[in-house]
Write a protein that binds this DNA or RNA. Structure first.
Lengths: 281, 281
DNA sequence: TGTACACCGTACGGTAGCGTACACAAAGGC
DNA sequence: GCCTTTGTGTACGCTACCGTACGGTGTACA
């Protein structure tokens, strides 16, 4: 089943080529070259502490976590493994441990724009919590790593009101809403350079490393712009000494410099996440 | 208290003038001319059926509605009455009866973009339900009319898990998320004419009338574009016989024609709302 | 060692939408 | 009936970004 996701979606992801490449990329990403690929649902020798690296799971009272633990399994996600696709029933929810996932709105013509990024601070699969059976949006792995996953039915049946996780997911939902809202306005009002810097900062917060893999092609799809635009912006940022970027390896050199280039949206979103997830209201 | 909202916010709404007008408009919307304005919190002679015009309230089982009814009061909202402002504590939630409210993301420089529209199918004030104390976004009345309102504390204390309203608000939250996500992508990928048509359709769905008041200035702020752009688009739509638009009075003449001009986003959002709020998953 | 291919820098014409400005007609207060 | 305000149409130069294209340089694999 997940196999199907991977194949169909690799095709989708590459079907839209903003740089106007011909079939070359399509073949690469398409079924032909990916036939041997297998979705690695590794049941790692997980332990409680590892699962609790996810901040939602880590914030649970002992007995609540122990109640959920039998329903959790560790899976390893590779870049562009698809978790959800629009109108397809949701089978699992994912609590990222050290991976990062992207939620994408996708148009009929195949063009996509990222509308959410989820790391260890959250859970991918909110629609299950909110009462939907099928996914309204597409989601895939952006930065590889592990996640704790749980069957959608388990989430529905095991989490009730009054549970700590129920409250935490409410707050995470609120933060996600603010993220989407701010992104919407940001897409309307801010330049490619600002949005690109914001995206790098946001991902930097989530991967927890100063260096990660990221091609311009990939980033251009996240931002919904041409790859050439990303190239221009990346050159500028590199010229100012804020990042180093070479063949898909991005390294943040000057984070505060990046923050100065980025729009206010990163700060607004970060503040909102901290406010809702760390402490009180 | 609500008085303060009105005054401060009128100022905010007019502080950004995309058409580059000078202080003229500012004075009009500012404190000077609005001093005599009063927020009409009319306690109408409401009855259950009237309150139940709101689809969320209307979908409740009898006993649940009767349990909530003592906490509900009818208020009349005028255009640009502000319901929420960022970082200000939320005192009430609003169930629109025949008004429509807009949720706006607003930047430091005063520029705004609409990120949500709420009519009788929903509730304004989701952050309360989701555990926030203060508003993360600005919200004001877009189409005047009545709403049932409830103290935020009442919503927090009277609605528990297992209640029908709890489930309905979950689904409404999901629909709102999809709205924000699709809007975000739409803002990135579609033209002003497409987005403008989409906005008109969306509002048409919510007001339930073929004619409503809407200045180009107002619409330009919703869309986050110049008023001049709205003027150009409106002329085009009028030329094609899809709408008539004269001095703030908009009339929809050819709805299916509008749908053809608009992007797919309106259909996607509408489908999602229907799916989540009308029937099953 | 060659040769595919992934990834990137750069260029060039085209255009949607911007900021700004101005004039004009209808609405409304005095 | 005048005068201010509100709402609108239109224009002009400008800029960011688009679609497209092509060549160059590393990396992987035979």
């Amino acid at each position: 089943m997940l196999m199907v996701f991977t194949l169909v979606s690799q095709l989708l992801l590459f079907a839209y080529r903003p740089d106007g490449c011909t079939g070359r990329g399509l073949n690469k990403g398409g079924i032909g070259a990916e036939e041997g690929k297998e979705y690695k649902a590794v049941e790692a020798t997980y332990n409680a502490d590892y699962l609790k690296s996810n901040r939602l799971l880590g914030a649970l009272p002992v007995e609540e976590f122990e109640h959920l633990q039998p329903h959790l399994e560790t899976v390893t996600l590779e870049v562009k493994d698809f978790l959800y696709e629009r109108d397809v029933p949701i089978e699992h929810v994912y609590f990222p441990i050290d991976c990062v996932t992207s939620v994408m709105a996708q148009m009929k013509d195949g063009r996509m724009v990222e509308v959410g990024t989820i790391g260890k601070e959250g859970m991918d699969g909110l629609p299950v919590f909110l009462g939907a059976q099928t996914a309204p949006l597409t989601s895939f792995c952006q930065v590889p790593g592990d996640a704790a996953r749980m069957a959608a039915d388990a989430l529905r049946s095991e989490i009730g009101p009054g549970d700590r996780l129920h409250e935490l997911l409410h707050r995470f939902t609120e933060a996600t809403l603010v993220f989407a809202a701010q992104s919407s306005a940001c897409n309307r009002l801010h330049s490619v350079e600002q949005r690109c810097s914001r995206w790098i900062l946001h991902t930097h917060d989530r991967v927890g490393k100063d260096e990660f893999h990221l091609t311009q092609e990939f980033l251009s799809q996240m931002l919904g712009v041409r790859r050439a635009s990303v190239s221009e912006v990346a050159s500028a940022l590199q010229g100012e000494g804020l990042i180093s970027y070479w063949r898909g390896n991005l390294r943040i050199l000057d984070r505060s410099g990046l923050e100065a280039v980025a729009c206010e949206c990163h700060g607004v979103i970060t503040k909102e996440f901290d406010r809702l997830l760390d402490s009180g209201a």
